[in-house]
Amino acid sequence: MLAILMTKKTGIGSESNVLPVTCVIIFIVIIWYGFSILLNAPWEFDKAKRNSITLSATELVTNTWAQKRPKLPAPHQVVGEIWATTVNKKVTSKRSLVYHGLITFYETIYGFALGTGLGILLALGIVFNRATAMSVMPWIITSQTIPILAIAPMIVVALGSLGFGGLLPIVIISMYLSFFPVVVGMVKGLKSPEQLEIDQMKTWSASKSQILFKLRAPRSTPYLFTSLKLGIAASLVGAIVGELPSGGGGGLGFRMLSGSTFGNTLHIWSGLFSAAILAGSLIAIISVIQRIVLKRMALEL
C-alpha cells in the first residue's frame, strides 16, 4: 500500500512532494531495521546459547539482518530477494517473480477490462432506466459488503465444478471488485451535464443516444479516469485474493501463500512489494493517460 501511495505522489510531475516522501521512506526504513533486530534477536540468542557463545552487539545486529528465515527480513534482504528472483532468474522459471507477476498482471488486466465494461453497462442502465436503478442499485451495494475472502473460494469451487478452472475464476473475482467504483463514478459522470446543456440538446431535438455520445460521455471522462484508478487497484487485490484458494496456478498471491505455508518470509515480502510496485505502475499508467486525455479535452478535475 505504501508503494501505491508513493508512486501516486512521486510518479508524475509533482516535484514539490519529493522531499517529504523521501523523509517518510527513510523514517520507515529505519523503523523497519529496528524491528528486524527486535523480532529476529530471540532466535540469535537461542543459537548462541546452544553453542555456548556470547554475542557482541555488532554481531547480534549483523546476524539479525542476515538470517535465512527471518521473522522479519531486513529491507536489503527483501531487495536482494527481489533482485535474485527477477534479474537473476529465467522468466519462465517458477521461482521467478516476473513469471508470477505476469500471471497476476494478466488476471488483473482481464478482470479490470471485464469490470470496467460491466460497470459502464450498469451505469448506463441506472442512468437511463428507472426500473434498473431501483432494482439493481441495492444489489450492487450489497455485493460490496460481502467479504471477498469469503466468497472467493466459493467462486473457485463453483466454477471449477462447472469445468472452468485456471484463470477464469480469478478473473471473475477481480472483476467483482473492480466494477463497483466504475458504476459509482460513471453514474455520477453521466449525470454530470448541467441542466442548461440538456435543455440545449432538447432545443435541437437531439435523441437520447445523441445526448449520450455527444454530451454525457465526454462530460463523464474525468469521472471515468478516477474510477479506473480505483478499479485497477481493486482488480489487483481481487486477482491476488483469487489466487489463494485456486492453488497451483501461480501468481503473486500464490507466491505469498506458499511463502506463508513454508515459513519463507522473504517470499512473502518480496511478493508483497512486487504487488505494490505492480499496482503503483498500473495506476501511474492510467494517470498519465488521464492527464493527456483531459488536457486535450480541456477538462480538469
Binding site: L196, D199, K202, W204, S205, P218, R296, M297, A298
Partner: peptide
C-alpha cells in the same frame, strides 16, 4: 415546432463544449 427545429435558442451562458 421544436421537433421541426423551428427556432434557435441562445441561453444566458454560452454553453460551448470545452473539448
Amino acid at each position: 415546432a421544436r421537433e421541426s427545429r423551428a427556432y434557435g435558442y441562445v441561453f444566458q451562458a454560452a454553453g460551448l463544449y470545452p473539448w
